[in-house]
Design a protein around this nucleic acid. Structure first.
Lengths: 343, 343
DNA sequence: TTGCGTAATGTTTACGTAAACATCAGCTCG
DNA sequence: CGAGCTGATGTTTACGTAAACATTACGCAA
């Protein structure tokens, strides 16, 4: 049975049934105080009977507000992105805002992707970008003018409001932890070059080593995937003086663990490994992974807060807000053999 | 510098500048054929100059269509959900539809969560539900009448159109694989009881064993998390005749692997382990995990296809569409010791 | 009792778009 | 050479809502 056009119920219909004007219905719908109790009850009853649902398009047209935030992201496959998105959606919902997803994983390059027109069109009150803005610039999407923007994973703090995990401090904690255990230096498996988070982690890794007077070994480059971590791990297993590894995320750390395991290098006895993110599975790696915990929920919360501040209060705020991290010490790190008191 | 109200540019503004009527502007915007070239150029130039962007609220109000699909989900933290969502978003975008996220992770129960009103309001043309509908029924959300719905992870094929991975066949393949290797029987770590996917996998596990004339050991109950898999794994490690385990997802399999490892039971030499999902990391577990591959992209694609069919063609279709799975054989499975020809 | 203030409700209007209908110029054909 | 048609463009209207303004009725103070 097809019911192509359900006859829409409007305020006028409700008003007619309740025997009032449509404006009174509007007042009831919006909780306006100056409607007397009995009238209100009548209207509510009529709404219920007709299954009235307000038309958000008409409301948006009238008010100029959509109560919607667009989220532009490249992919959801990374834990960080999806958890940030989840936090954004939750907090936005609490504030009465909906989330519209705008994926940029352009499969066919020049086909005008419909959802982008959501940006081209006026359909969101603000936009949160979860990717390096330089990548966004390169993509086919252009942010329309006059739209409020908050950005994650970027250094565009001079142009936009940026919310991000304190990548540098997290990496510093990881490296300091390993040095504190007595390791002479720390090797690093980086994320993709075009990720700002990856760059910051690598930079802080190098800086921390330098500040401690240690030499930084050549970094190994990964792409966030466990597979790339595995390849890096194989290379590291062949470095006899490698006793400590800082992987730029947990998935690559997982790959490193497997490579070391296959090459017979025990973790943490022979090599200590630290990751970044603290994904839910990290505690179940073999061995459970010491890693830098990111508070994605807080990042999401601040994104929403930031964008709403811009929308509601009209404050536009370039600048960067950093969310702190903490080191979650588990079983993948230990003093190096030569410093092990038990030897 | 705050610019609270950017003066909106409407078709009338463009029309004035181009020296035509606003209806002509509308025609140009919608690619209507009966506008002569020179006029079209003028209008396009004016649009560009004024940075005209169509107002989707007005359009939706006029047409009654929002070109938006709502996606209701409980959480994004499971790989399956976020990958399905990503596929949905991508395919919806290709069809010119936007995705509005409706999270149901009700933190404060009775606070009227704004995003839900997106459903209460008329703001989506259809809804895709990524959760067991019985849970949805129990939640504070109610699906409004006259809204097209497609459901994932549910047995509500009689009430709604359902798209799902072929859970039963996937589980059957997993168990058959282990039996084929010579294992006498297969133990099972289930997902949460209220998940339809979990139930179906458990049922198929039991049925496959029964059909092969084997006795099904008591199932161990997990909650999808690696930690719950770990607890189940500890119990399994104490079962001397346990040589094969089928975990209802990869994360729990990860926990099982760790438990077995810690208890000194070698995988796959002593115990074989199979997972479900084929998450990207599965190939980097220790050892790389044999698992049932789910085609989340296909599930997402069919969801969008299904909902658009209902919306555009007015076809409402209860019924279940199953997406096939395939077993991805890696290194976590092998014949049991007593059947090992090398012994 | 009259007049005025206030609370409750009704009426008008505008938001931006696009369908439906109206107009007009130019052209073809008998 | 004019009737009739076609193609290009303009005018009117309605979509559902809510702000702004208008109207009513009632109570209270002088």
């Amino acid at each position: 049975m097809s019911r192509p056009k359900a006859p829409r119920v409007s305020m006028a219909d409700v008003a007619r049934l309740a025997g009032v004007s449509s404006q009174t219905v509007s007042r009831v719908a919006n909780g306006h105080p100056s409607v007397v109790g009995s009238t209100r009850q009548q209207v509510l009853a009529a709404m219920k009977e007709l299954h009235y649902r307000p038309n958000s398009a008409a409301r948006a047209l009238k008010s100029g507000e959509f109560r919607t935030i667009g989220v532009i992201l490249f992919t959801l496959s990374s834990t960080g992105n999806s958890r940030t998105l989840e936090a954004i959606a939750t907090h936005a919902a609490l504030q009465g805002y909906a989330i519209t997803l705008i994926p940029v994983a352009v499969p066919t390059q020049d086909s005008v992707l419909g959802a982008f027109t959501r940006l081209g069109e006026l359909a969101v009150d603000g936009v949160i970008v979860i990717m390096e803005v330089h990548l966004l610039d390169a993509a086919t999407v252009t942010l329309p003018p006059n739209v409020q923007v908050v950005v994650v994973d970027s250094d565009a703090g001079d142009r936009y409001a940026v919310v991000d995990t304190d990548q540098a401090d997290g990496a510093r904690q990881a490296v300091a932890h390993l040095l504190g255990l007595g390791h002479r230096t720390v090797w690093h498996v980086t994320g993709p070059q075009d990720s700002f988070a990856s760059q910051r982690r690598a930079q802080a890794w190098r800086d921390t080593l330098t500040a401690a007077g240690r030499e930084a070994p050549p970094p190994l480059h990964g792409d966030w995937s466990a597979e790339s971590g595995y390849r890096a791990g194989l290379a590291l297993a062949d470095e006899p003086d490698c006793t400590a590894v800082f992987a730029a995320n947990d998935q690559m750390a997982l790959g490193v663990l497997r490579a070391l395991h296959e090459r017979g290098r025990a973790v943490p006895a022979d090599v200590s490994v630290v990751g970044f993110d603290d994904i839910p599975d990290a505690g179940s790696f073999i061995p459970p992974l010491t890693t830098v915990h990111q508070d994605f929920a807080e990042v999401g919360r601040r994104c929403v807060e930031g964008i709403l501040q811009q929308i509601d209060r009209g404050e536009t705020g370039p600048g960067t807000a950093l969310v702190p991290t903490r080191l979650e010490v588990r079983a993948s790190t230990a003093p190096p053999r030569q410093a092990d008191p038990r030897r």
